[in-house]
């Protein structure tokens, strides 16, 4: 049954003329698409980086004993996880409607240097703000789960050796939490790569918007969407490889045997073939 469906799909891929493979080939490496890919990569990397930092900060704050610190982190996560990303993107895009200028000054008093909000927060920055603030809220839950997964005896042992809380967190707890943090973070990165397509709505020329710009002109909608799909798949596949090595690195000491890398597997296969050859 499945085989038949797959066969039909493959048949369609090869025979349906509306797919226009030559058009796909023509645009796959075109300048505008490549620029869109680069923008998508840039947004993904930057938003994830900021999101991870924010998330770690919020997670550590959530675990603090200080109720104000704890409450602030809780509020942050509550707000940014509780509203749709698309709404947040449009909100940051429209922030100049709320605050005409941003300025330094005395709260409720006079202010000194000010700047038009529109100049201060250009398009790219509002996209980045929206994506990373939203990501930070999700990452904070992931990091918190990771921290909580580390046995309390670990911090006790570290404290008994004279490490401060910060040293303990950085050297003892977080490295062990990584084993729990990395897999869902890989998931988040994958998800982020695709979520960047949402900022096409505010006019950022990332991959999807670039494809749309072309098919709005030449009406080759399907071929250009296929171009976008190919690039998205290529990028998420590369991410998966990166995740494998990261998980392997942080698995140190937690398992007796680390999984082999493809290179190691190939070497093993090669040497076993050789051995078989030498012992007929």
């Amino acid at each position: 049954m499945i085989a038949v469906l797959v066969a039909m799909l493959v048949h369609m891929l090869f025979t349906n003329p509306n797919l226009e493979w030559p058009t796909v080939r023509k645009y796959l490496f075109s300048n505008i698409i490549l620029r869109g890919v680069w923008m998508t990569i840039k947004l993904t990397i930057l938003s994830m980086a900021i999101g991870i930092v924010l998330g770690t900060l919020a997670a550590v704050m959530r675990l603090s004993e200080n109720p104000v610190v704890k409450g602030a982190a809780w509020l942050y996560v509550w707000f940014f996880r509780g509203t749709p990303l698309l709404v947040q993107i449009v909100f940051w895009f429209s922030i100049h409607l709320l605050f005409k200028t941003l300025a330094f000054g005395i709260p409720f008093g006079p202010h000194f240097a000010g700047e038009n909000t529109n100049n201060l927060i250009p398009l790219f920055t509002s996209a980045l703000l929206a994506l990373s603030l939203n990501e930070g809220a999700y990452m904070s839950e992931i990091v918190r789960a990771g921290i909580l997964s580390v046995d309390e005896g670990q911090s006790e042992a570290a404290h008994a050796l004279g490490m401060t809380k910060t040293q303990t967190m950085r050297r003892i707890v977080l490295p062990q939490a990584m084993r729990v943090i990395v897999p869902p973070t890989g998931n988040e990165t994958n998800s982020m790569l695709k979520s960047t397509s949402l900022v096409s709505t505010i006019g950022i020329f990332e991959l999807l918007r670039s494809a749309q710009a072309i098919y709005n002109n030449n009406y080759k909608t399907i071929p250009l969407l296929i171009v976008a799909v190919i690039w998205y798949l290529a990028m998420t596949s590369i991410l998966q490889v990166g995740q494998f090595y990261l998980e392997r690195h942080y698995g140190r000491g937690s398992t007796r045997t680390v999984p082999l890398t493809p290179v190691q597997k190939a070497k093993l296969l090669f040497s076993s073939v050789q051995n078989r050859g030498s012992h007929p």
């Binding site: 006790e156 042992a157 570290a158 008994a160 050796l161 004279g162 490490m163 490295p175 140190r252 937690s254």
Partner: peptide, 19 residues
């Protein structure tokens, strides 16, 4: 923390750093 550097402690469950 500084005071604790003068006092060594060994735990029932070892609590070695596994990484």
């Amino acid at each position: 923390a500084k005071k604790r550097t003068e006092i060594g402690m060994v735990f029932q469950h070892f609590n070695l750093f596994p990484h």
